[in-house]
């Protein structure tokens, strides 16, 4: 009986050592993972979802309202779009968007972007597409914006902007 009790005490001792070792191991692993995942960092940053941007929408609205020269006359871009004069539309579009998305290395980081604009004449199944700005390494995560207008003949024109930031 004494032997039995001694054995029981020995098992109890082993149990304590084993359980404490397991708890310590689990704690260390948890701490290492938490540290690795930056769990203990006191700094948190809120990032704005950029898949859609009100700034780009504003840019599109200003693009349509901009004055451009067509046949020596000053007209607004949305009027020029209805003429479907591709050369003049291209010149006006590139002038405006290259001022926003700049390729110069001295440009601000947020202005170093690549733009890709498509103008779709929905009723005619016709699309004009222009691009420019800075060269970007990856074309992932575009910031999409689009706007729909009607021309004089009540036909829909969709203008879609895809913008890629360099960062």
């Amino acid at each position: 009986m004494r032997l039995f009790n001694e054995k029981k005490a020995q098992e109890g001792g082993f149990e304590i050592v084993l359980v404490s070792l397991m708890i310590i191991a689990v704690l260390i692993i948890t701490l290492v993972i938490a540290q690795f995942l930056d769990f203990f960092s006191e700094d948190r940053k809120i990032i704005i979802e950029k898949s859609q941007s009100s700034e780009d929408k504003l840019l599109l609205m200003n693009y349509l309202r901009s004055n451009v020269i067509s046949n020596k006359k000053e007209i607004q871009m949305f009027q020029l779009l209805t003429t479907e004069n591709e050369k003049e539309i291209e010149i006006g579009t590139k002038k405006i968007f290259n001022r926003y998305c700049q390729k110069e290395t001295t440009a601000f980081e947020k202005n170093r972007c690549f733009w890709d604009l498509s103008i779709t004449y929905n009723n005619k199944n016709k699309e004009l597409r222009y691009s420019g700005g800075a060269t970007v390494i990856s074309l992932n995560n575009p910031i999409n914006s689009s706007i729909k207008i009607k021309n004089m003949n009540n036909e829909d024109i969709t203008i879609s902007l895809m913008r890629y930031e360099t960062g």
Partner: peptide, 20 residues
Amino acid sequence: CENKDYYILVNEKGSIKDGI
């Protein structure tokens, strides 16, 4: 710090001009 150029329109005495 945050720096950015915005393409805007300016109304001066009734006429609209483009600007940054």
